[in-house]
Amino acid sequence: MTTIFAHRGASGDYPENTMLAFTKAIEAGADGIELDVQMTKDGRIVVIHDETLDRTTSLKGFVKDTAYEKIRTADAAGKWKDSFKGVRIPLLSDVLRFAERADFLINIELKNSVFRYEGMEEEVIKKVRYYGLEQRVIFSSFNHESLALCHALAPEIERAVLTMDVLYRPERYLASIPASGYHPKLGTPAVSAEVIKHLAKHQAALRPFTVNRPEDMKQLIKAGADAFFTDYPKLALSIKEECCN
């Protein structure tokens, strides 16, 4: 059964990476949420996709150069500012506290490919363990060295390789980290029924991003994809129900 992850929450209809988007995704019945983390100037882990505040908030500048006390005042409605004015950038701990009271998966993307964010892995792992969510969290990153460090620090937490490229013998590459998830971009040759079956034989999961077209959702569900990430979890769940009946 294909698992539906809400990409940055229900971000097709609500401001991305906000508690509102995460809450709406879970209310819609999503199996899990995906979120992105960056580190502030004073070492706090905040949930935001870009390295800068410019696109999604009322502030400007790099997250890494801004203290949390300032970031917490930002309006994070982004393009939805006329409809959802006043939503805030959450801390990772805000989301984990919410998850502690419910039952869903959390894919935490470590956004440390542009800036290294020294100590990010340790801080994120500490918070996941504090809330006892080790078995419900997946760490993903385009920085595969970071994933290897996550394995060394917390082997009990699942890891997944994010990539825009096609990997040769992906199961071997995953084993070298090690990781058990392969998260390629939809539209690349890495996403096919053949790759899904091949990885399944090696106990690895293919979970492509970002899947927003109904025809792509149907194709992946019928091919037996372990999961996919979508901005429209409600739509994906209705298609999943249709495919399974």
Rank of each mutant, 00 (worst) to 15 (best):
K85Q: 10
T230C: 07
I26F: 12
T56P: 01
E134K: 12
E118Y: 11
T40H: 13
I26S: 00
I4T: 03
D75H: 08
R159Y: 05
P170T: 04
S83V: 05
L35Y: 03
Y182N: 08
R44V: 04
M39H: 14
K81Y: 07
I33G: 08
Y168N: 13
L92S: 05
Q219I: 00
H198L: 15
V166K: 11
E118T: 12
D216M: 13
K201T: 00
N245C: 08
S93G: 02
V195E: 15
A67N: 13
D82N: 05
L186C: 03
R44Q: 15
A152F: 10
R169S: 14
D31M: 03
K126M: 02
P15W: 09
D42P: 01
N212Y: 04
C243I: 11
A67K: 11
V211D: 00
T18G: 01
T23N: 14
H151K: 13
R169E: 15
A99M: 11
G132I: 11
E158K: 07
T230A: 06
Y173C: 06
Y14R: 07
L96N: 13
F98W: 09
D165P: 03
C243L: 13
L147A: 04
I89T: 10
V161T: 04
F209G: 02
E171W: 15
E109Y: 03
K70V: 11
